[in-house]
């Protein structure tokens, strides 16, 4: 069971086999996606027809539209990025304010509020989506009934997508940042005050630099979660499709390997972000 206890040979072998099978299970789908991005055939399916970069570089003249010429896909990547940037900015800002409120301030109802902050994490994404959709529509109707103003941002579209994703990603940012703030030694703030720093200077030179790893980490996580979000986005999306929605639509229709190409691009981007974060997490300063 553990290395210090005798383990029969068959158990060792079975463990190794299991780990190998598990890793294959994990990576096979990703490997297949990557490999078929380079297959010289109109569909991402065997057999192998030889290597090509058409699904990245191809243009209409070649009869194959590659990722870098597919304005629809590129546009959706751009849309996703804009949405993700908004969600990241909002989530980190609100998460930081929440962390200070929960760790530093005392007020009645604090326990209830901290519970409420966790609820978005246990509400299925689809339901977050429809509830915000319905509520926003009601507000929009109120606007038009009462003031005869068309509040277009309350209709399905990117502003609602941003709000929908933010509604639960903010909870994750709050948890991450609070956890680090809780470990902060407050005598450092006393020491800075004692050395003549004003309150804003203490925040800026001591507390925020201490929180930096959590701020960066939660920003990266917020960006990725927003970029990859599907459930909530599906309910709130309007005319402009973020990448996941666009890919979903094409997957149902049976798409060309250009989807493999964009997936490979996503994999590389996520891996870079993940590995950078893991390296930072291991460095001694944090």
């Amino acid at each position: 069971m553990i290395p210090t206890l005798p383990r029969p040979a068959w158990l060792r072998a079975a463990t190794a086999l299991y780990v190998a099978a598990f890793l294959m299970f994990l990576f096979l789908p990703l490997a297949v996606v990557a490999v078929f991005a380079f297959n010289d055939a109109p569909y991402p399916a065997p057999p192998w027809h030889g290597f090509t970069l058409d699904w990245f570089l191809g243009n209409e003249a070649a009869g194959r539209i590659g990722l870098f010429r597919d304005s629809e896909l590129l546009g959706s990547i751009w849309t996703s990025s804009i949405v993700a940037l908004w969600v990241t900015g909002l989530s980190v800002a609100v998460g930081t304010a929440n962390a200070f409120a929960m760790e530093r301030a005392q007020f009645p109802g604090k326990g209830a509020l901290s519970m409420l902050m966790l609820t978005p994490l246990v509400i299925p994404g689809v339901i977050l989506g429809i509830s915000i959709l319905a509520f926003a529509s009601r507000l929009a109707e109120l606007c038009s009934d009462l003031f005869a103003v068309e509040a277009d941002f309350l209709r399905p579209g990117l502003p609602l997508v941003v709000l929908g994703q933010f509604s639960y990603i903010a909870a994750i940012a709050t948890l991450t940042i609070s956890a680090r703030l809780k470990r902060f030694d407050r005598t450092l703030e006393d020491a800075a005050l004692n050395l003549g720093a004003s309150r804003p200077a203490v925040l800026w030179t001591i507390t925020l630099p201490y929180l930096r790893p959590a701020l960066i980490g939660s920003a990266a996580i917020a960006f990725l979660m927003s970029f990859e979000n599907f459930n909530t986005t599906l309910m709130l999306v309007g005319a402009d499709s973020p990448l996941t929605i666009m890919m979903y639509g094409r997957m149902r229709e049976g798409a060309t390997p250009v989807l493999n190409a964009v997936s490979l691009f996503l994999m590389v981007a996520s891996a870079v972000i993940a590995l950078t974060l893991i390296r930072r997490g291991r460095s001694p300063e944090s």
């Binding site: 096979l28 569909y43 599907f230």
Partner: peptide, 29 residues
């Protein structure tokens, strides 16, 4: 290594399973 696949979008992972499992896919072949 166990975490890395989950940094990739669920859409991409599902695409992988579709390529693997569909009638014209890798496993049936």
């Amino acid at each position: 290594v166990c975490l890395i696949p989950f940094w990739v979008s669920e859409t991409v992972r599902t695409l992988g399973w579709m390529i693997l499992l569909r009638e014209s896919g890798v496993l049936p072949a």
